[in-house]
Write a protein that binds this DNA or RNA. Sequence first.
DNA 1: CAGCAATGTTGACAATGTCAACACTAGACG
DNA 2: CGTCTAGTGTTGACATTGTCAACATTGCTG
Lengths: 202, 202
Amino acid sequence: MTLDGSSYHHGGLRAALLSEAAAMIDEGGTSIVTMRALGRRLGVSRSAAYRHFADKSALLVAVATAGFDHLRDRLDAVGADAPGAGIDRLRQFGEVYVRFALENPGHYRLMYGKEAISREDLPELRQVANGLFDELVNVFQSYQRSGAIERQDPQLQAYVAWGAVHGLASLLIEGQILTDVDVDGLIRRTTSTLLDGMRAGR
Amino acid sequence: MTLDGSSYHHGGLRAALLSEAAAMIDEGGTSIVTMRALGRRLGVSRSAAYRHFADKSALLVAVATAGFDHLRDRLDAVGADAPGAGIDRLRQFGEVYVRFALENPGHYRLMYGKEAISREDLPELRQVANGLFDELVNVFQSYQRSGAIERQDPQLQAYVAWGAVHGLASLLIEGQILTDVDVDGLIRRTTSTLLDGMRAGR
DNA sequence: CAGCAATGTTGACAATGTCAACACTAGACG
DNA sequence: CGTCTAGTGTTGACATTGTCAACATTGCTG
């Protein structure tokens, strides 16, 4: 395979499709992602993508899956660093989560919305998402044992926390929050409010 | 105008389009909403809708706007009843909000997502949404004065609360939360955690 | 070096959003 | 009561889209 784009075979079309599709969603939403436009932007014909993905929906599912992988890496990195291994780590999870969504809105929208993804592909995606969620439940269980938060159903706690950061991320991505708001402060305030609300001894 | 559907003129097409479009989104997402399918389901030709809406995007914006009106009515009703005029009302706002989203997922998705709505129509929608948000800020200000919650920037508090209920609603609508979870309990837990986290004297 | 499997292209088709030209009808005005 | 005009609905047409089948090109495997 040649590395310049002049040859008949592209050489890395699959990866290029995934990254270009995500870039297009970032720019103008899923509606502007078109097999033909995708081909045009990559210097390739309209149906070249069909050698790598069964259909458009499968391509978008792959973009979403890549997003989950990326997000998991980021969250794992937080676990590794572990500066103040206490409840601060939970706070960091939330902040990293929202920041990931802000930096990869195209991925994020596909990961947690069902627009533009066909019905049959959804279970696969949900399974990946559930894997991440289960880890979150584990984190809450562990913090309960350490006494940092109230002993309650950790699954419910995880849903509450996930809902809050997911909602914040969505509002930011969809442009619902005024641009003059201090985003970092808002993120910190969200995680603090959550953890204060879950702290033991209330 | 005749009331049966047999005449040349439909008689109430505009309203019928709005309600049928929302119903279709509830059933299968925005992607199945098609001018032609809409006409078919209403016994009307494919481009009849263009006598009432400039284009498809305008129709969807109208659906979203109707959703905001409906939601505002529900929230106002809570304000009117006012059983325990204290912080319980804030809790009720959150519960009514999430329940509205669950009962009208089609409307809700259009109200707070930018999929399927063209760029030019967004400012109009955001203005309606901002009106609702301003009222929420007022509620927080008033509860601060009554001493029920911490004195902090009420706009930030409103964003945190809105984000949490919006996120919960989104996760539920998009099917991200396991079906065996007690939804009502989850909603209550969310509002409680938020308010505990904001309560004064911590 | 022959040939096969992977990859890319082109032609074609049905479905979609939308516009222009036309049809029907309810009510305003005489 | 008749006319006609604005409002509403229909049909024909076109460009665009996702997708499949048939064909082209190429890198690798023996």
